[in-house]
Design a binder for these strands. Structure first.
Lengths: 147, 147
DNA sequence: TCAATCCGGACTAAAAACGTACGATTTAAA
DNA sequence: TTTAAATCGTACGTTTTTAGTCCGGATTGA
């Protein structure tokens, strides 16, 4: 299935946590609040900082804080920060990559439309959207373990 | 990066090839025409048949043919046939799966919007769209081999 | 100075994807 | 009726990707 990595999922949770902080918080604190493993949170925050979504403050009392408002951060940015550019296949415009079958490929260059639609979809949902509290349900959902 | 599997990519090429055939063709023939590895093509065709996108005809002179017109087959169907239901994370409505952090997760259930946008994006492009010849470029694009 | 904190890369282990192979089943044609 | 051409289902080994961990170095406030 098409999916994003767990790390990108964590990134959203991490950013949502940061969005609720007034002062910079360390990776350890974020891990504690989100219950995510510390080293992994640290890794995610590093990637987010590199991508410019959060600001890192070094030294004692340092930590991270959002660099933009939640409404300015969309899912595409988050995913890109963690996993690199969104691209479904190797055969994407501008890609330096090339598949071996290109010579005989009849759909050459035709993934671009899909790719564009996907990117727009991811850009249409912001962090603020994802933080909006659902009115009900989620809290009371009962789940089974699968076999 | 968000990406689909190579198998799904092959599926598109395979379907595009089938779309140009008048009579049923075997997996071996499709492999020859597309230059894709035979066993892999066979696997892809099996999956496509199970999903109802192609019709399989067993026995001598058997093979596969499209069950719908290229305009009726969208990318979402193809990807779903190969990789199963499109879902970005475990935390999707209706999923039997559950992540361990759900109790403290502030974005619980909030991937659904993204998920929906993504699915619509994939449904908006059909096989017919992907087979439409680009007016120019693709054919003459020169590429380098990668190192 | 000292302690807290980020930085960057390297490394290991686990999971998924890929490609392949094989025996069973079906069916058209000889 | 026999034979050959196909698909079907499953199982397996390898490769690739992802997740998670760790450590030494750099930065900064107290």
């Amino acid at each position: 299935m098409i999916k994003i990595s767990r790390l990108a999922d964590y990134a959203v949770v991490t950013l949502a946590d940061l969005a609720q902080q007034k002062t910079p918080v360390s990776a350890v604190v974020v891990a504690g609040q989100t219950r995510l493993p510390e080293p992994t949170v640290a890794k995610v925050l590093k990637l987010l900082a590199k991508a410019g979504l959060v600001q890192s403050i070094r030294g004692a009392n340092g930590g991270y804080r959002l660099k933009k408002s939640p409404a300015q951060i969309d899912v595409a940015q988050i995913v890109t920060a963690i996993e690199g550019p969104v691209s479904l296949t190797a055969c994407v415009e501008g890609s330096a990559d090339i598949c071996d079958y290109q010579k005989h490929c009849t759909v050459k260059g035709r993934w671009d439309d899909v790719h564009r639609a996907l990117r727009e979809a991811l850009e249409s949902v912001t962090l603020a959207d994802m933080m909006a509290r659902p009115k009900c349900c989620s809290q009371i959902k009962k789940r089974d373990k699968r076999p």
